[in-house]
Design a protein around this nucleic acid. Structure first.
Lengths: 241, 241
DNA sequence: GAGACTTAATGTCAGAATGACTCTAACGAA
DNA sequence: TTCGTTAGAGTCATTCTGACATTAAGTCTC
């Protein structure tokens, strides 16, 4: 008998199909300290059983028979982290034979984005914690999850469309400076504010509102809004999940 | 008992994990007739059992316990079509609950490119045939395979890197005109020969050789070669498959 | 209240990239 | 030898891009 329902233990694995799981790389933005640049960060869960007990890992779990893959990803990350991201995209499916030491495991990796509010309000306990993506403590993760995180970052950096990512990592309305901070965090380098503004004005998917962000210490910036939809035909609708 | 090893029939499905399969969209280039443009084409196999018996479908099959996903894709397409592509890339994993009428089926779709020689020499019989991608006969395919084909075409059109696709769909050496034909087939529009030449010369991954293609009816074109490697960190090495 | 300071937003300018087009070179066919 | 066709190089105007300057509009300090 296997200790995980639906999963075969090491002695049965040759005679059964691979076990199916989903894992999600959840990325959010955290404002920089002391005027430093914003940082990308992600929540991880601690493994509470073998294999890799005690190591940090991506939130995830098995796929139920009654749910689609995207629904499985949404449900698993809600159960393990309490988060409900508003963007979910399938990343890649990892299925090397030896990626788990105890059983043959095929993992469909997803990639989620959280806005700033969601990052702040998340519960943290001994088994769930947030890390900056360059934190040395997560240089190694359980299974091949470090490779999955790296691939998610690569995908994010190679996303062409500006607005798409923008309103997912920020709120419904946002300033151009905040958006620039997001892109600087993703790309890891400074961007010229004037040129950034110019290219975004040519982007049809971002639109100025009549509102300004008051309460700052300097000239109030105008708020912008995302309109339209990206070109990827297979984006998951997380409202179904 | 299920008629397919490792797969549950409809009565057992609620109690077992989803069945895992791989399917591959194999794309090749066919030279245009009567001076017309080149065309993208793909081989399909006829379903010889239910569900969807008689319909055309992507080549594929189950994932064995002893092979990686890429290996499963390479093995299945070799068994069903006799083809051994030199490029294989994971596309997307399809896992909607009702995508197969008889059992819960999760399919990891792959995307392969063949060069012109391989397209010509393929065996065709009643159950394997090549179709142009705009052939009305394949407007409908078994399962959700039409959606998978459309997504493969979308991915191909959105590939940025020129040389990568080039030497996979053509041979080791190729003329710039042949490469332009490939891109015109992919993008579905004519490209200016002079400008195409210029942009390719600025592409570091394509290099001129000292050889020329003799035997044509006009001035012999120079042969070029692909050098270097694209940026995608998760490309499958098909030599392992 | 008068500056100084900081950020918002616009403008300028040179170099690179792009699209449309012209011109010459090199082959086979007539 | 001439012609037709493709190979390949070059031209020019437009657009895009990065670097930088300038003005606008708030808060903070004295």
């Amino acid at each position: 008998m296997s200790s995980v329902p639906g999963w075969a233990n090491v002695n049965e694995r040759r005679n059964l199909p691979p076990a199916l799981a989903v894992s999600t790389v959840i990325l959010g933005i955290r404002e920089g300290q002391d005027g430093g640049p914003d940082k990308l960060c992600l929540p991880l869960v601690r493994r509470i059983r073998e294999p890799h007990q005690g190591l940090w890992a991506l939130p995830g779990g098995p796929v139920d028979a009654q749910e689609s893959l995207g629904q499985a990803a949404g449900r698993n990350l809600a159960e393990t982290t309490g988060l409900r991201p508003n963007y979910l995209e399938q990343l890649y499916t990892f299925g090397d034979i030896d990626r788990s030491p105890t059983h043959r495991l095929v993992t469909i990796a997803y990639f989620a984005l959280l806005n700033a509010n969601q990052v702040g309000t998340t519960v943290q306990d001994d088994n769930v914690a947030w890390f900056d993506i360059d934190d040395p403590a997560i240089a190694q993760l359980a299974f091949d999850h470090r490779k999955i995180v790296d691939y998610a970052l690569w995908r994010l950096r190679n996303k062409t469309e500006y607005g798409q990512i923008a309103h997912r990592l920020l709120g419904e309305r946002f300033t151009l400076a905040a958006l620039r901070g997001v892109y600087e965090a993703i790309l890891g380098r400074r961007l010229d504010p004037a040129n950034f503004r110019r290219t975004l004005k040519n982007t049809a998917t971002i639109e100025a509102t009549d509102e300004y962000l008051a309460g700052g210490q300097h000239r109030p910036p105008r708020l912008y809004r995302y309109v339209g939809h990206g070109p990827d035909p297979l984006e998951v609708d997380p409202t179904q999940a």
